[in-house]
């Protein structure tokens, strides 16, 4: 028994040490740095106490970024899962080319972010973009003149594109779970006269609950941290209406091309982000806890 314990410890130790050195220790340091005013040039740091945190909640751009991030989490999340479920049911309904459709929906996940944002720039271009041109062809003047990427619309335009990307990942996740549900359950339900909705709520959702739960946690972490796609969506100077917390952290800490170097403040944003992830994920795990169904 003792030997077995030693063996387990010796196997866990290297990974544990790496995790400690590259995640836990930097995280602890991040908490420390978040109490300082620090440009990141040299070690000249000024202690601010909770100053960075107090400033954060008075900072209109941080609050806007937080609002956008929570919108991606809630509205984006509901839409992603609704579409992923819908497509899962459609693809699993016995149509031909199931693997092809699955691959097509998943495809955006394997394409570089910058290529995706360029694609969407062409779709949304008000002069020759796909959407405006289509509306022009069908004679819908208001649609043809609509500016999808204007200052006040660009966030929603980005969100639509983001949803389009994410649906593929969650589709694959749900389909993998759905493939494991025995077909007899559905056959039996059909014999009993259940309709599609009853089968979905009575069989699919309960038996997929673990997958849904894991998927929700994964999406939550993704949504709270989302950075590269919205950042690349507007390639020169992202309007503040497009900011997410991750983007604002980067702009405050690393400046993009403006000499804004507030590493202490940016670290405080990171700490708030980490706490948001931990609290929301714990809350979700608790809310989504169900008795495990064996099948």
């Amino acid at each position: 028994m003792k030997t077995r314990k030693r063996l387990i410890v010796s196997f866990l130790l290297p990974a544990g040490l790496v995790y400690l050195a590259f995640f836990l220790v930097p995280t602890a340091w991040a908490f420390y740095y978040s109490f300082f005013d620090w440009s990141g040039f040299g070690l000249n740091m000024q202690y601010r106490g909770l100053g960075n945190y107090i400033e954060l909640f008075r900072d209109p751009i941080f609050l806007l970024s937080l609002k956008n991030t929570l919108f991606i989490l809630v509205v984006g999340g509901i839409t992603v899962f609704a579409l992923a479920f819908l497509l899962t049911v459609l693809v699993n309904s016995g149509i031909k080319g199931k693997k092809f459709f699955r691959a097509m929906v998943f495809l955006p996940n394997v394409i570089a972010t910058i290529a995706l944002t360029t694609l969407w720039a062409f779709i949304y271009n008000p002069s020759f973009g796909l959407l405006n041109s289509f509306f022009r062809v069908i004679g819908w003047d208001a649609g043809a003149k609509f500016t999808f990427t204007s200052y006040d619309h660009i966030f929603y335009a980005m969100l639509v594109a983001l949803i389009w990307i994410e649906v593929g990942f969650f589709l694959v996740l749900l389909m993998a779970g759905m493939d494991k549900i025995p077909a007899e359950y559905y056959e039996a339900a059909k014999i009993e006269g259940a309709n599609q909705w009853q089968m979905f709520t009575g069989i699919t959702v309960p038996l997929l609950w673990d997958v849904i739960s894991v998927g929700t946690v994964l999406y939550t972490i993704f949504a709270l941290k989302v950075f590269e796609f919205p950042y690349a969506f507007s390639q020169i100077t992202p309007p503040t209406t497009l900011y997410t917390v991750g983007m604002y952290l980067y702009i405050e800490g690393f400046g993009k091309r403006d000499p804004i170097y507030r590493l202490g403040y940016a670290t405080a944003i990171g700490v708030v982000l980490l706490l948001c992830v931990v609290v929301i994920v714990l809350l979700l795990r608790r809310l989504m806890r169900r008795e495990v169904i064996q099948y």
């Binding site: 949304y124 002069s127 204007s150 200052y151």
Partner: peptide
């Protein structure tokens, strides 16, 4: 022009 509101770089400079 009003469509400028929807131009993201470099769409306008290309015009």
């Amino acid at each position: 022009p009003p469509e400028s509101l929807g131009y993201t770089w470099p769409a306008a400079q290309q015009t």
